[in-house]
Design a protein around this nucleic acid. Sequence first.
DNA 1: AGCCATTTGTTGCATAGGCAACTATCCTTC
DNA 2: GAAGGATAGTTGCCTATGCAACAAATGGCT
Lengths: 159, 159
Amino acid sequence: MQQMAPLARFLPYQLSIASNAVSGRIAQEYRARWGLSVPEWRVMALLGDFGTITQRDLTRLSLMDKVAVNRACKVLEDRGLVERTPNQQDGRSHLLDLTQSGRDMHAQIMPLAREMERRICAGFSEAELETFRAMLDRLHRQSEIVDADDIVSDNFGIE
Amino acid sequence: MQQMAPLARFLPYQLSIASNAVSGRIAQEYRARWGLSVPEWRVMALLGDFGTITQRDLTRLSLMDKVAVNRACKVLEDRGLVERTPNQQDGRSHLLDLTQSGRDMHAQIMPLAREMERRICAGFSEAELETFRAMLDRLHRQSEIVDADDIVSDNFGIE
DNA sequence: AGCCATTTGTTGCATAGGCAACTATCCTTC
DNA sequence: GAAGGATAGTTGCCTATGCAACAAATGGCT
């Protein structure tokens, strides 16, 4: 069924479809069970681990766009899962934390995350998983977006 | 700088940011050089390899949504890179192929693809790359979307 | 031949996501 | 303490992406 097209051996493509499949499956689970989007789930996870932090902290920790963080926080606040309190040290920002309801949900969603990770990693050794993580980190670092000048001056051996 | 948050060790998350970084970088290159989106580039690559095929074939080969394939083909046709001819065997579909201009561009874009792949794989052994590909394939297959009934009946050990 | 289910391609709609611009606040420097 | 640049958060806009619904055509079944 799956043909051996050259495209199917192109590593960035394989990475993309695997990531989309995993993300799509996880998004489906969290939406069906708790009505959470992926950005919302990530904010819940970070707030559960780090406690009282600002949107700026969440942006740094999650590597998400600050707008994505802001919108996720707004939804969670409207649902009563997160509360904002004024930040005495900096009037521009607010301190965010889980409410009791948010902590209850956090206690529900984390075991599912760990279980899903365990499932998709089943059958691979610790060494293989470490190699896999190392490669993902390397791919991430080597693919950082550079500015336009660098692109123009770097012709990849073409022509 | 990069904190050791639990989220940063969550494999689906690492997979997502690595894939986004790689895809974003590649998309940037192809947009800057030839004004091609990722779906358009994929269609170009497949047409270059497989010759005269239908949109249905392209959808199967690329694993993309049929709408994405259709829109990419339309753009490529408008740019004179792809041409459609009636399909005598099936009046519903058309046969797609690269024009001479499209073949010229194909000859340009494939070396860049191979060079980018070589770069991001630099420093890893063939065995490591094979393990990596195997894991991506496995993640993809294990994460196939299932229907809603399966989700409800499968509680992942919660409660 | 006629009907019905299936398939291909297309369009429209609804959502997600990122970037630029803006406000408010902070911090430095004079 | 006033001015200028930097930073946190917010809003609006634009694009990308995917699904549902649809029209045209096919193929099977009687």
